[in-house]
Amino acid sequence: MKGIVSGMQHFSVGDGPGIRTTVFMQGCNLRCEWCHNPETISFKPVFLYYKNLCRNCGLCQKRCPQGAHLMMGRTHHFNRERCNLCGECIRYCPAGALKISGKETALSEVMEYILEDMEFYSSSNGGVTISGGEPLCQADFTAAIAKECKKHNIHVIVDTAGNVDFSSFEKVLSYTDCFFFDVKGTSERDYLSKTGGSLKLSLENMMRLISGGCNVVARIPVIPSYNDSENDCNIMAGLLNQVGVKQVHLLPFHRLGAGKYAALGKSYPYEQCVPPSKQQMQKLADIFAAHGFESRVDG
């Protein structure tokens, strides 16, 4: 069995309890404007060129059969249209400036990577987080990974925005210890305009999971001048109360994805957006706590 994986990362310390390995699945059905993993959005592999790491040595130009890499004088230009993602250039880049996100990966390869850190999961009460992208867009593959993990008694978190048919959840839920469920807006209209998805669908799915006895944590990205007011938090708290979720993690917006937008040749609409302060984040977390949630700032 195979899936498309953007990347895998050991020692993830922001993706749940303990020391974890995170598997980032390639492809997402939402288009959140602030996305910090833009390389995982496309369901097809994408090429990243980090201009700031490039030494302009021209070796990629020599190796590229498509003429996608061009040296103009001493400067490297990348012609994205010509690239057919063969990856030959990456083998010859001495600077690590070239990467492909999205590789067809066998289940066995994912598991081999995960199992490398078994001792760390057990010593830290950690485990595996399947994230993305949207892992439930590859529900069968996600389920297969989770199932294998359970065979080894590894704690599994699925990190999802949940804008999928509930049948996708049904594939994974018996192998999942906890869902990290993103909540990305206060109204159907907002959600649609900022992410392209449906708030209603995600909340319905969340409710079904909880009523089915699943462990669910709401994860709210706090985006300045979108959902960062006290009023926004009161509304979200109301929605989440109806759904029945008990734990809320607030994730402050950050700009760490900016370099990846540049590497993808895309513009980053949140370039100028200032991350919320620690104090502000704590204030918002306190609002959720006042509503009876177990709340914290994460990330």
Binding site: R255, L256, A258
Partner: peptide, 26 residues
């Protein structure tokens, strides 16, 4: 400093592969 990893949120990055502005941010 190619191995200098800055870890935040559900995503982490090699510090040197980040934009100057982001580096300053961190």
């Amino acid at each position: 400093y190619k191995d200098l990893v800055v870890r935040v949120s559900g995503f982490s990055a090699y510090y040197t592969s980040l934009d100057k502005a982001v580096q300053l941010d961190i």
